[in-house]
């Protein structure tokens, strides 16, 4: 029973990371209208940024902020240099460009930092015993960071003028234009947010495991699955979707083994697309 509970707990942790990545995917999809395959590598970039920042400043918190800014900046740059140029073409162009960008970022990080794994030097803390469960204090911090991130995204979207305009563009881009809503500030904010959220996911993943140039790419499929499961364009849905996939992956591990747990997210993705394409919270797209 304890074994089950511990798997559940570690599922929740990886679920939060997947959920954050899914949140970045779903934000971009909702407003820029394409699946950004560079999300995973923005995570990696954030993790390396944090690693570098931590080494330079000696503080994990400052390091984390460096990583977050690196992710946000990279995402805004990717918009300015690539996705804005493709905005008037079919979404397939942007998707393909994002795959190219993903390779480019990954190769660049490999070149700069090498392909060996790096680790964050975290203090080793004795786990908290709760009932019969061992809980890592760091996991609690990571979970708190993930939740705070979600809350901030929610506040920006629902309680600020720029968030309102982002939702308007997501809802009906054409009507937004004739209502005089300028796309540029909306897009800059969107990309900065998506980049920062991806970076946070990458930093948490890097701190929990190891940092390597491939870490983010491996998260892409689960992130897409979380976004689809939650209902594309639905921020809370992405986090819940991530949790479902994270838990499903961990609980399946005793049966399918560690190597194949990633297949679980693929199966979830397939099932959702077949049974309920609009996801748990989603609405039917295109019917107005």
């Amino acid at each position: 029973m304890t074994g089950f509970a511990e798997l559940l707990l570690s599922g929740v942790m990886s679920g939060l990371i997947i959920g954050l990545a899914g949140l970045a995917v779903t934000l971009v999809f909702g407003i820029a209208r394409f699946s950004n395959a560079a999300t995973g590598d923005t995570m990696t970039l954030g993790a390396y940024g944090a690693l570098l920042g931590t080494t330079l400043t000696g503080s994990l918190i400052f390091g984390g902020l460096v990583g977050l800014l690196a992710g946000a900046l990279a995402a805004v740059l990717s918009y300015v240099l690539v996705f804005r140029q493709l905005a008037n073409r079919s979404p397939i162009s942007s998707l393909l460009a994002s795959i190219g960008l993903a390779f480019f970022v990954r190769a660049g990080l490999g070149l700069a930092f090498g392909h060996n794994q790096s680790v964050f030097q975290l203090d080793i803390v004795r786990p908290i015993r709760f009932l019969d469960l061992r809980i890592q204090p760091n996991d609690l911090k990571f979970a708190a960071i993930a939740l705070v991130t979600l809350v901030i995204v929610f506040i920006i979207l629902h309680m600020t003028p720029i968030g309102r305009r982002m939702r308007a563009v997501a809802d009906n881009p054409l009507l937004a234009r004739v209502s005089g809503i300028a796309p540029r500030p909306v897009m800059f904010t969107l990309w900065a947010m998506a980049g920062a959220v991806s970076a946070i996911a990458g930093i948490i993943l890097g701190m929990k495991t190891v940092v390597s140039p491939e870490m983010g790419w491996d998260m892409l499929l689960p992130a897409f699955a979380a976004a689809v499961l939650g209902g594309i364009g639905h921020p809370v849905g992405a986090i819940v979707g991530g949790l479902v996939i994270g838990v499903a992956q961990e609980l399946a591990t005793p049966f399918v083994g560690f190597t194949y747990k990633i297949a679980v997210s693929f199966i979830v993705l397939l099932l959702v697309l077949l049974v309920r394409p609009r996801g748990m919270f989603g609405r039917v797209e295109g019917v107005r």
Partner: peptide, 10 residues
């Protein structure tokens, strides 16, 4: 959303 010149534009 339609009101112009919103200071919180970014």
């Amino acid at each position: 959303a339609a009101a112009p010149g919103q200071g919180g534009e970014n």
